[in-house]
Design a protein around this nucleic acid. Structure first.
Lengths: 234, 234
DNA sequence: CTATTGATGATAGTATTGCTATTATTTCAA
DNA sequence: TTGAAATAATAGCAATACTATCATCAATAG
């Protein structure tokens, strides 16, 4: 059942919903390709418009500016992660096991995905590694936060924090630990590729076993429980 | 003994050494003030030149571009941290205790500092929190890395990794853990201030005890040793 | 005591960026 | 079929990220 789940994002992220029109989808699809190729700094609405043979003005009708577009893409990604995590854990009763599934998905382990998208999700995942921090590391954070633009990241974080508390109700840093896991995942994917002397994590295998191991180790030693030794069913 | 330790940075970070001239020092001092005030995106060499009543062209004679300037400032900061850590640990024999001093300094606990600077170090520390990630999260990382522009961060990381190994020679992720501690420190200082729902860390106290506690907890539970309960002597 | 070098300042210029505005054209729904 | 909405085409503007040229001034080397 390859359901087309519609990911519902905060309306303040865009001026016109890009999923509703062909042009909108072209903007999203091509912006992902271009940001992945050029990096966020070199990416401009003019270059994007050229690629989709449209105009800068048209792109501006969908997104206020490129920062909002980045926020849109990143939010979409967190929403997608949330969906995948729910999908793969909804019938896992043991909380520790659910946390492990969470980590496995975070670390980008390829799992059969029921959600098909009109754009390159792997490119988006690379964008999240390289650019996601820039979505909030600005002088505009507080305004953007008030506008609810980080809602998806925060709610996903909270959801996983509850799992941590289920494992150990006395654990004093559930949100901190989960956000650390999120940030650490991206940083170590990046380090493994570009600054390998900063980590023991290696990228060689598709399963990213060393990243998964490191994250499991960090999480479970902090929470104070041994890593559950269960093979997940997929 | 308030020694004026000269922090020696990679020469590729600048075109002309800013510490050698009055103009150079003015550039560094005022750029720290301006980046802290405006954020890195809104900061320009033109604005900087106006502040120091010099010209854009003169600034460009010291730094190739604003990205290199950021790299310079961030490298200076890591170097300064390195110096402080060495200073406060050189006669601490116990490795676990040295790691704790390291964490305490990382978390910006105010300690008597022997190094006096001609600019606002606290502003620089804020810049590191908000902007340091942008120094490497670019499409230019590999070039910058080849040019040795991350040398200071990497060597500091390695130094601390050796301390981790001294505590537990079997520990499989010393560099990963240390870089996680670095990144986590900055992220949680940021979260505590702007996205508090992502962390239990609070900023209220000068000593930042909650951040220090969280970092100690993360580090020592991962390494597999209890937190040493020693009051440091300062 | 020149003569030269090196650092700075003054000024100008250029391509690109990050928009906004106006008008024209197409589309498709009532 | 007509009218509203979406898009394209074009222009323009202030700011950014530089580069280049030339004049000035100070130190210092011969």
């Amino acid at each position: 059942m390859s359901a087309t789940i519609t990911i519902k994002l905060n309306e303040k992220l865009f001026l016109r919903d890009p999923e509703q029109t062909e042009l909108g989808k072209a903007i999203v699809k091509e912006s992902i390709r271009l940001i992945d190729e050029l990096g966020f700094e070199q990416f401009t609405f003019k270059k994007l418009a050229q690629q989709i043979t449209s105009t800068e003005a048209s792109v501006y009708r969908y997104f206020e500016n490129k920062h909002k577009l980045l926020l849109y893409l990143v939010s979409w990604y967190w929403n997608w992660l949330d969906y995948r995590i729910s999908y793969h854990t909804h019938n896992v009763t043991d909380a520790a096991e659910r946390l492990q599934v969470f980590i496995k998905i975070l670390a980008a382990d390829p799992m059969k995905e029921p959600l098909t998208t009109f754009f390159d999700v792997e490119a988006l995942a690379r964008i999240v590694v390289l650019e996601a921090s820039k979505a909030y590391l600005t002088k505009e954070v507080d305004n953007d936060n008030r506008a609810g633009l980080f809602r998806d990241y925060k709610s996903l974080c909270h959801k996983m924090a509850l799992v941590v508390l289920e494992i150990n109700p006395e654990y004093p840093y559930p949100h901190a630990l989960v956000s650390t896991l999120f940030e650490t995942t991206r940083k170590h994917l990046f380090f493994a590729q570009h600054l390998p002397s900063l980590t023991e994590v290696k990228l060689e295998q598709a399963g990213l076993t060393s990243l998964t191991s490191y994250l499991n180790h960090l999480a479970f030693s902090a929470i104070g429980t041994a890593v559950v030794n269960t093979q997940s069913k997929d």
